[in-house]
Every structure is written in structure tokens, then in C-alpha cells.
Write a protein that binds this DNA or RNA. Sequence first.
RNA 1: GGGCCGUUAACUCAGUCGGUAGAGUAUCUGCCUUUUAAGCAGAGAGUCGCUGGUUCGAGUCCAGCACGGCCCA
Length: 495
Amino acid sequence: MAMSEESQVLRQRRQKARELRDAGVQLYPNDFSVQDHLADIREHYGEWSEEDLAQEQKILICAGRIMSMRSFGRASFMHIKDATGKLQVYVQRDVIGQDEYRVFKKMDIGDFVGVTGTVFRTHRGELTLQAQEVRLLSKSLRPLPEKWHGLRDVETRYRQRYVDLVVNDSVREVFIKRAKIIQKIQEFLRGHGFIEVETPMMQPIPGGATARPFKTFHNALGIDLYLRIAPELYLKRLLVGGFERVFEINRSFRNEGISFQHNPEFTMLEFYQAYATYEDLMTFTEEMVCWVAQEVNGSPQLSFQGKEIDLSPPWPRYRLSDALVAIGGLEGSEVEDEEKLRTKAETLGITTAGQESGKVLTKLFDILVEPKLEQPTFITHYPIDVSPLSRRNEEDPSLVDRFELFIGGYEIANGFSELNDPIDQRERFLQQVAAREAGDEEAHLMDDDYIRALEYGMPPAAGEGVGIDRLVMLLTDLPSIREVILFPHLRPERS
RNA sequence: GGGCCGUUAACUCAGUCGGUAGAGUAUCUGCCUUUUAAGCAGAGAGUCGCUGGUUCGAGUCCAGCACGGCCCA
């Protein structure tokens, strides 16, 4: 939508602002000291009788944005809204004064005001502030969206999230809950002896995941740097350094497509625990996710996009190959025989030429099994060629001690016992480098410093990454990642 | 990348067969001192996403493009 500065509504607002300024009213003062918040006022006086309220002499001083206005000749009702809630305000000319009321009449829905007054209850029983003084604190030059349909257009909601937050209370609640989820995860991890750390977001060698990175250039150093695709390799360096339990919750960046499940920058929890195995982490994850749900939603049961999900542990665990048979409907022989597997994959439209067998297996899994995993489910025993940083399985060296967690049909977490054998790790990197030379742009790069760190010795350990955005989607019952990211990436607006 | 859908006033949306662009909210004016989707009376407000094409005439039909959504890869 072209922003026409000439539109009538905008002209009228600017005109009013000029008139106020010409009348000596400061449009953007910053000397109003707020004493009371609206929710506190409602909380405190909510149950008081009309008589008790009439006796109450306390002068309240609050501020907020005007959200609605019902004006009469010499009096007006309005609702104002602050960060805590809403409150009705009654403004009478004979109380605030004739000149003051004239100024007040030039205030608009959307303006920030400071209100001083006492509380009373209206005939209809609504707790209301009787204004003794109304001060303009910030003049709004653009009208807010309509009062009962609100702002619906998703494009405008994302591009102008500030407006979305002003008028759509449910949106605001989502982001409050998001903050609480992250806070509770931190609390849980700290309670288990983990410390929160910050590792580089700009990395000379992007690693820890298979994804394409964003590239940038550091002028002073004269080198290319990459926005991290994962913090993994740095967090494991900290295990080498002697930290035994570390975590990081922050952004990673992947230079890939945008969808309801993907934003180019997204938030991930990664945590690493020395002397733990991937099996320990599965149990730990069950406890953590269930506890967080209990804390933020009050229950481990939830409804996600019409599906009833129960996060109460324990959660079923399937080997990847077993899941393909039991849930994906493949024949046992198809999973065991690579030729049959490839044939099956081709009939499902998967290109298998030049793909390692592990990739074929996981692609089949993505199509046949993942969407069916509504209840929380761990999938274990992944093929080694799709897991270059995971510890090899003791019984079957073609597999690794790794799991992924699925809830609501989406991958939520990925964890494994860490590969801490520097010789094996170097070989795995070399295989990745070969795959990259063969055209796999997402394969890992050699990271010599990481190998060097492992050569000093990393304790046996397990680590895990949890997609925070997807966890928030799950706990808020929202279908799109853009609904849980404040400012999701969109193509630039045309001017 | 492909398919489908959407884009009309500040917001939410109508717009029939191609024939002068509409409603509600918001805004403005008047009346109104307990309203709460306040009420009553009146008024103003549009580059119909953009660029072309067809036509006497295009919001409407056609093509291309842009942005967004959903589905598929």
C-alpha cells in the first residue's frame, strides 16, 4: 500500500497537532511521572463498593494510550491502555476546566495521555478514573485500525508489528508467553547446574549443522566471516576447557527458504553435559519440556492445531529403521536392502542418485513418518553419514548414538552423544569435505582448530539443540513461525 | 521453482452482465455531563497494488510484474 501522506485522515491529524502546538500544548513532553499502573488499580479497587470508592481520597497518577472515546457535549469517557491493562477514564469539563477540556477535545484515539484523578464506579458498575487532569504525552499522527475487527491483514501485521501489538491483545500475549518459555528453560537448566554462555555468532568456519550460511566481511581483519548456522562446535570447545554443563539460547542463521516453519534467523537452545549420554538427554528433555509446559500453560496436555497432545513422560522411542516399518509402512526387507530402499524412494519422487544411503533413509522418514508423529516421540539410531559430529554406536558402527524429538508432526530437538575421538572426527570431516567437493553445498567444512581442541581431550558428553520458535508454536497453538517471531523477514515493501 | 487465492477509503469488507466507486468503523461539523460497538442529524474522504493490452467505455476481461497467503517441489 502506497503511503499517501496526502490522505485526508493524516492531514486532519497533522492539522490538529499544529493547532495544539499553536495553543501552547507540548506534543511530546517527557516530564510526567507515572505512579500507578492500570492493572494494579483494577486489582486494588476491583471489589470495592461504590460507597467505599466514594470515600477513597487517593489521587492516582497513570498513563496510557487512548483506545476508544465516547464524547458528549461537556464530558467524555475513554479507555486508556498501558502495558498492564485497560481502564476507563471519565473526563468532565467542569472538573478539569473549560480551557483544559478544549485541549482535551483535540486529543485522538492513539494519543498517549497522562491522567490524574480518583476512582469511582459508573452506573453500569465499571471501575473508572475520574480525571482531574489529562495531559497529552505523545501525539499520534496515524489512526489506529478499527475497534472491533482490529488489524487482520497478515502482511500489515508483520510489517507493522507495532500496530499489531497495540490492537491485538492475543499477539501481545504470545510474545509474553514466549519470553516466559525462554525464562523457564533457563531456570530449569540453571537448576540443573548449567551455566549460560555466549559464543561467536560470526564464525570464520561455519559448522555444527548442515545448512548454507550467510556471509559477511570484516573490514579491519580483512577476512570473510559467516553468521553461525549453529553454536555447537564452540560449546563443545568449552567442554574441552573444563566447563561440564553449558547452554546457549540465541539466534542462528541459515541462508535458506522462508516458510511457515522457517525464518532465516531463528532461536535455538543448545546445551552440553559432560559424562552424559544421548539416553540421559532424552529423559532430561522429557522432564524439561513437560515442566516448561506445566509452568507456562498450567498443564502438560495441550491442543495443537486441533490435535490433543500429552507431554507427560515417558515418550515412546523408536529406532529410525523400526519407525519406517512400524509407522511409515515400509516392508522390513525394504529397510534392510539398500537397492529395494532406493527403488522405494524413487517411486515416492525422491532423487537417490549420488545420495548416501543414510540420506535416502532420512528423506523417506521425513515423508513417511515425521508428519505422523503427533505425540512426543524420540527417533534414535541415525545413520552415521548424516551425523558427522555424533558418537558411533558401540554395536553397529554404521549408526550413531543420536535422537531427534518430534511433536505435533515437526522436529523439535536433535541430540546425541558427542564424538570426542579426534581421529574419528577428522575422518568424518574429510568425508564431509569429499561430499562437498562432489556437490553437496551443505556438507561440513574441515575445522582444524576444532580437531586440535578434541586432541587436547574432550570428556565424554552429550549435547542437544532445541528449536525454540517451534516449541513456542507448540505451546501457543500457532501454525506459523511468523506468529512467534516479532519481526519475521519479508521481502521489502515496494515504495 | 510450480499451482491456486488475495491486493478497492486510515481499518474491516461489498462491488451483479464491462456503463458515474459503496457500507460499517474511524475522521470532520452540530446537539448531548454515567457512556461502553453511546445516540441523533449532516459532511468529507479513493492513483480500485503497478505497467501495458482489448474496448466507445475496465475495479470488473487479457498479459506481464510486485507484495502477501495457502498447497506442492
